[in-house]
């Protein structure tokens, strides 16, 4: 084995991959949530549709989106490898364990939280991303240029209470994943410092509340504007 594959197969190397891909996905989430706030614009979806076209056609964004796909896949693959490996390190469980007295629930259940996020991701991608790329889409034109009307698809989808509920609940789980994951990634990278760690902790907490809450508010907002 070369030193690279040896490192990537070590416990620390695997964690490094989790942390780097996790941090990249955090940056992705920041971009995704910022762009999607265009859904709140009261313009019949024009700004959102123009943004959606840019996101699917701009070459620089294309490179970023491939990096995102790779990050998701690597994050999930390494999470399976690590979770299985970690389980095998304790073949006989304790009969009586008070783990809740020494660690948070979400830190101990990142695999479960991640699996729920993955299920949500499958539903989410199938509903919007797949349609946008390969599905039959209604078309609108702004200033003589043709745009796929993703806004109408989104608008229609979020008239279902079930889907809105799924999105809101999934964002709750994302928040739990991030409230441990954000600061954990810095610790994995070795960035634990008296000057910076308190700020990282606070930023992580704020991120894990604000970003999922913003995401969750979108389906809720669309559901209510369609009720009137």
């Amino acid at each position: 084995m070369s030193w690279v594959s040896k490192t990537l197969n070590s416990t620390l190397g695997r964690k490094l991959m989790m942390a780097l891909t996790g941090l990249f996905l955090i940056i992705f989430l920041l971009g995704h949530v910022s762009g999607n706030t265009l859904l709140f614009k009261n313009d019949g979806g024009e700004a959102f549709n123009i943004y959606a076209k840019f996101m699917t056609t701009n070459p620089a964004v294309k490179i970023l989106s491939y990096l995102t796909y790779i990050s998701v896949i690597a994050h999930v693959v390494y999470s399976i490898i690590l979770t299985k490996y970690n389980k095998s390190a304790r073949p006989v469980a304790y009969a009586n364990s008070k783990a809740s007295t020494n660690s948070s629930w979400n830190s101990r259940n990142m695999g479960i939280l991640g699996t729920i996020i993955l299920i949500f991701l499958a539903v989410h991608l199938q509903g919007f991303w797949y349609k946008m790329h390969w599905g039959d889409m209604p078309v609108v034109s702004y200033g003589g240029e043709q745009y796929k009307d993703l806004y109408t698809i989104v608008n229609f989808a979020f008239q279902s209470e079930l889907l809105v509920a799924l999105y809101v609940v999934a964002m709750g789980f994302l928040g739990l994943h991030l409230s441990h994951g954000f600061q954990s990634a810095f610790q994995t990278l070795g960035l634990n410092h008296v000057k910076y760690s308190p700020a990282i902790q606070k930023l992580g907490l704020a991120f894990s509340i604000i970003v999922p809450a913003l995401f969750a508010s979108m389906p809720i907002y669309i559901y209510f504007i369609n009720m009137n």
Binding site: T11, L12, K15, N86, T101, S104, S107, R108, Q187
Partner: peptide, 14 residues
């Protein structure tokens, strides 16, 4: 055969 770290902090607490 020791496991990897999930940064739960249980070790430090105990």
């Amino acid at each position: 055969g020791f496991g990897a770290c999930t940064n739960t902090g249980a070790c430090e607490a105990e």
